[in-house]
Amino acid sequence: MKKFLTLLLITGISLPVMAQYKVGDKATDFKLKNVDGKMVSLKNYKEAKGFIVVFTCNHCPYSQAYEQRILDLDKKYASQGYPVIAINPNDPKIQPEDSFDKMKERAVTYKYTFPYLVDETQHITRTYGATRTPHVFVLEKQGTGLVVKYIGAIDDNTEDPKGVASPYVERAVNALLKKEVITIETTKAIGCTIKWRKA
């Protein structure tokens, strides 16, 4: 702890008060603006069994590398009750490529079948504890609430979809659908840092 404090002093990092989700935590719903201008909340999805929430963006090559796979996840799982919800967490002042207008363009160009929301205040991004793009949170509906069931990468091979040995998100959602235990609940992956608003 002392070392940690020293580190904070040394680096001058100011940590925002952040309740970073862990697997098993209750997840909060949100109301965020979609690229079509409408507000989206998870509670509007009456039929859903859960959600594949993906923090992603336009500019990041790692997000781009996963774009088709995110579309494939939605194609495969939306009909089974686990739609993809994409959220762009980045401040467009720092990363102009991630502006709302560019989000709209991207959603059209790549024919997004899922909502692509903007987290303008970055409150949801902080609450969930996303640190990079892409960063996935699989949520399961339990009663009236939502519970975090998986946090991490989409799979184990960003560069080569054919070289994937462990499709983490697919396995997690398959397990949820079959009411089985998720064997790998959290993973780490390389990604682009979230572009936080300057205070």
């Binding site: 990079r132 780490k188 682009c192 979230i194």
Partner: peptide
């Protein structure tokens, strides 16, 4: 590399 690293760079 570090147990606290989420994988974001730099």
């Amino acid at each position: 590399v570090d147990s606290s690293w989420s994988g974001a760079i730099p």
